[in-house]
């Protein structure tokens, strides 16, 4: 097996994640789908690192994880505060710029 198959898997996961972002209305699930996309990217980076024989890809994946962690923290905080004001976690209900 050639490691390029990992890349196909990454592409597949990324696409599934993107479709999930578009389809799901629950903000938390949307967030999970974003995490899925990030993870697919990470997989691609790791595989690229292996293909090129250096660790730079892994470093990028590492940074992605850190950024994803920060993003999750802020994103979930936003979801919680939206939920507090609107009593819903649906992204469609937050369609106005005012309450």
């Amino acid at each position: 097996m050639n490691p390029v198959n990992y890349l196909y898997l990454a592409a597949l996961l990324f696409t599934i994640g993107a479709a999930g972002v578009l389809i799901r209305r629950n903000a938390i699930v949307v967030f999970m789908c974003i995490e899925l996309m990030l993870n697919a990217c990470n997989l691609a980076f790791v595989v690229f690192a292996r293909m090129h024989g250096n660790l730079d890809g892994q470093i990028i994946a590492f940074f992605t994880m850190v950024v994803a962690a920060a993003e999750v923290v802020v994103g979930l905080a936003i979801i919680v505060s939206i939920f507090r004001t609107r009593h819903t976690a649906s992204v469609d209900d937050a369609s106005l710029m005012k309450l």
Partner: peptide
């Protein structure tokens, strides 16, 4: 539309 998913 204001809908995040449309923008997505």
């Amino acid at each position: 539309t204001g809908f995040v998913r449309s923008y997505a």
